[in-house]
Design a protein around this nucleic acid. Structure first.
Lengths: 157, 157
DNA sequence: TCGCAATATTTCATGCTTGAAACGAAATGG
DNA sequence: CCATTTCGTTTCAAGCATGAAATATTGCGA
């Protein structure tokens, strides 16, 4: 009939699209890991801290009234138990404090301390500079194209 | 004299580009983490294994003659000590084996076993299907645009 | 009000990850 | 040859991450 070669069906579009998506994913993973590793390493050498701690500080900086543990883990998309440990260490460093919540003795409200807010501001400044450098290959239109494409991936998940 | 407002200098292009890159990076990180978490979870429930182990199997599958520990950690871009542990567990599962290298008693050659090769083939098949599903929002041209943008980021790092 | 499900958080076991230190083996330079 | 350096790998301590179990508290329905 009009059928293709059974060994390599002339460009089966589903299969090709799948391969294309796989390639895109592998590249996405590679680039993300490389940049993440660079940021992680600089966080360690310049601030003696870690990316997870920075993420927690960033979340708390956006919510000056504080966040509950579960709100924090929800925002960061990590497990509850995870946040417990990271917050413990930040409290130990004096960057964050826990408060009781009036009316619910189960919950904890977590907030930045003054030192925590100042430390985060400095880290955020450097962090932006690192990202700017690490992504220096990206001009404005390409950055927007990337955002667009990622938006579609996000919608598709 | 023709200068802009000192509070918000009318569109300082460097600063705006930096912000744009930061936004792109945060989005990149978010999307990547979400997909990675989904794959990780499915690896666990469907195959009772982990992404790092899958990565090692994938590398070994591409090199049927085997790889040294240091070649493996170089390919995967992780530390030596890391690979030691992951390979230990894969050996324990019978998916991988270590061989001595003739002429260098320091080195180890790591290879897939028959079972390892078969197990990986099955996992890889499912893995591609998951990625295809998780990135279903991405049509072919957008996938290519994404690859293009990521290539530039890669070149810029 | 009593029992019980739902909620907020911590604890735990397991595994990944890193960077540094330890170690044996190989290579190299007097 | 022998000392020193380099190399390949493992070991180690610390921290991140997960999912499951434990704990405590709240709230709801009979």
């Amino acid at each position: 009939m009009d059928g293709g070669d059974p060994v390599r069906p002339a460009g089966d579009p589903d299969r090709e699209l799948s391969k294309e998506r796989l390639r895109a994913w592998l590249r996405l993973l590679k680039v993300t890991r490389r940049i993440e590793a660079a940021i992680r390493s600089r966080m360690r050498t310049e601030f003696n801290t870690t990316l997870p701690r920075f993420d927690v500080l960033a979340a708390l900086d956006r919510f000056p009234d504080g966040l509950r543990m579960s709100e924090l883990s929800g925002l960061l998309r990590v497990s509850n138990g995870n946040v417990t440990g990271v917050v413990d260490r930040l409290v130990g460093e004096g960057l964050v404090e826990r408060h009781a919540v009036a009316g619910d003795r189960r919950a904890q409200l977590v907030r930045l301390t003054g030192r925590g807010r100042a430390a985060f501001a400095e880290m955020a400044r450097r962090h932006e500079a690192w990202v700017n450098e690490l992504m220096s290959g990206l001009d404005a239109p390409t950055a927007r194209a990337l955002g667009e494409a990622l938006g579609r991936v996000g919608a598709g998940g």
